[in-house]
Simulated assay, not measured.
Amino acid sequence: MNKKVNITTDSGADASVINEALSAAVREYRSQKKMSLDELSRLAGVSKGMLVEIEACRANPSIALLCRLAAAMGVSVADIVNVASSPCVRIITAEDIPCLWRGELGGSARLLAGTSGPDMVELWEWKMHPGETFETGSHATGTHELLHVVQGSLHLTVGEESFTIGKGAAAVARTDKPHSYTCEGDDPLIFTMTVSERAR
């Protein structure tokens, strides 16, 4: 099985826009809080060197790193990549939906929309090709993911347990443990995912 973990966007426009947004968010947060790189590094569990690269817009952050930084700064990933909700209604055009992961075989994960702040809900669309896997660490305690398989078969692993979710089926998973998604079988996989996470 081909396996690539936490590849983020390619070298195209998505990566550049996301890197610039994250760089600006980290700089603004540190400025507002009068916080040193060392302090944010400890708070987020991200190395100081990585933070320097992020602020200089030279890093290509994984989804897991985006999540850790967002949680440490009290915002959502949707806030950082500018697909968060407004007080009433916010329409996000197809062109403005960021791709935050690309698999080595052409798969993708797009953050379609999300709410602002540390208590957040996100809506994702995942497309994976046979053999592709995405692995990530634990989310905050009590985080849940709601998954619906539109096409193909999803192999979901949470901690030590594994499950297969077929076309048309749905699942609720508590993802405060390391977890992974794999495209199982010979057909491409498409699934939607809603993430609900509360601030620690």
Rank of each mutant, 00 (worst) to 15 (best):
I97V: 14
S116M: 10
E161Q: 12
L111E: 09
M120H: 13
K33H: 11
K48E: 01
T143A: 12
C67F: 10
L146W: 09
L123I: 15
V26N: 01
R42D: 09
A70D: 08
E132C: 10
H148A: 14
S162W: 03
W101Q: 07
I91P: 05
H129V: 08
V81R: 15
S47D: 02
E160V: 06
E104S: 11
P130W: 13
V89I: 13
A25M: 02
M128P: 07
E53C: 01
G107F: 12
K48M: 03
P87G: 05
L146N: 07
M50T: 06
S153H: 08
V89L: 14
S41T: 02
V77K: 14
G107Y: 09
R102G: 10
V89W: 05
V89D: 08
A72S: 08
D38P: 03
C88M: 09
L69H: 12
L100M: 15
S36N: 04
D38R: 09
P130I: 08
A84C: 11
N82E: 13
E55Q: 07
R110K: 13
T143F: 00
R42K: 15
G107K: 06
A78Y: 08
E39S: 10
L147N: 06
A44H: 01
G159T: 01
S116H: 07
L123E: 10
T157D: 04
S31D: 12
G74Q: 06
V83S: 08
P118K: 15
V75A: 09
S116F: 08
S41Q: 05
A72K: 01
A71F: 10
H148E: 08
R42G: 02
E55S: 00
S31G: 12
A140P: 12
L105S: 12
A78K: 09
G103Q: 08
G106Q: 05
E39P: 03
C88V: 11
L51E: 00
S85Q: 09
D38E: 11
S153A: 07
G114C: 12
L66D: 06
G106E: 04
A44Q: 01
D96T: 11
R68Y: 05
S162N: 10
K48P: 03
C67P: 05
L51A: 00
Y29K: 00
P130M: 09
T157V: 12
F134R: 03
L37K: 03
V83T: 11
T93R: 15
K33I: 02
L69V: 07
E53T: 00
L40Y: 03
D38Y: 15
E55Y: 02
P87E: 09
L65A: 11
E55R: 01
H139A: 01
L100C: 15
A25C: 05
A71Y: 04
E125W: 07
K127Y: 07
